[in-house]
């Protein structure tokens, strides 16, 4: 068996941040879900979920901020990347159903470092993250000082974000772990690498650019 060639997709730093953020997110979801699903609500008695939720919230807020501080350029680039939508992206949206259901790769334009689906996920988090944080802070620190309507609508907005994020989160996990076409992607967040084939198939544009960059350096 020939040794597969692997390319690096995520640095150690990125992966650590990702997993810490994931942990925070799952912690928040798990400790928050008790407020959503009445028949498991009783588990939340005596406020232990609320203490953990607060710790999760600090991590959840803290990781992006920390990332910004440690890798400002990279952070800005990531945001730029998410906001930059080209022909390939709209092509991705058009091709996605056939691609993900039927495995029809023909119509799928080559994707950059992240594909448009990932961009959408990122954009959603860019939207819901601040909602979570702002409404969370209002409810956490200002419930006794602000009118109760503020709290009431904060709960509502927190909930909207929760529903949207969790649904998308399911998709994210599914595509990262379970989808037959995507097997192989999970390693990008564990050891940071994917196979050359996988990279070529899924991030063709990025792979080509990366290959170009690497050749000269590789030739040295």
């Amino acid at each position: 068996m020939k040794k597969t060639e692997r390319v690096e997709r995520y640095s150690v730093m990125a992966r650590v941040f990702h997993w810490v953020h994931v942990t925070a997110f799952i912690t928040l979801v798990v400790t928050g879900i008790f407020l959503y699903v009445p028949w498991i609500g009783a588990v939340a008695q005596d406020s232990w979920t609320r203490v953990i939720h607060r710790i999760g919230a600090v991590l959840f807020m803290g990781m992006p901020i920390l990332f910004f501080l440690v890798r400002p350029r990279s952070a800005i680039e990531t945001i730029k990347e998410g906001l930059t939508w080209g022909k390939e992206d709209f092509g991705w949206v058009a091709a996605a159903p056939r691609y993900y259901f039927l495995g029809d790769e023909a119509a799928m334009p080559p994707q950059g470092r992240v594909n448009s689906g990932q961009k959408l996920w990122f954009l959603l988090l860019m939207l819901t993250g601040p909602v979570f944080v702002i409404t969370g802070i209002l409810m956490w620190f200002f419930q006794d000082t602000l009118p109760s309507a503020v709290f009431q609508w904060s709960v509502f907005a927190h909930d909207v974000s929760f529903i949207a994020t969790v649904c998308f989160f399911f998709v994210h996990i599914y595509l990262s772990v379970l989808h037959p076409l995507m097997s192989g992607v999970f390693s990008s967040m564990t050891n940071g690498k994917v196979t050359k084939e996988f990279a070529q198939a899924h991030y063709a544009k990025w792979y080509e650019e990366k290959a170009k960059e690497e050749k000269p350096s590789g030739g040295k």
Partner: peptide, 8 residues
């Protein structure tokens, strides 16, 4: 006993 303290 069941109260989680959410304050809703």
């Amino acid at each position: 006993d069941l109260c989680s303290g959410c304050g809703y």
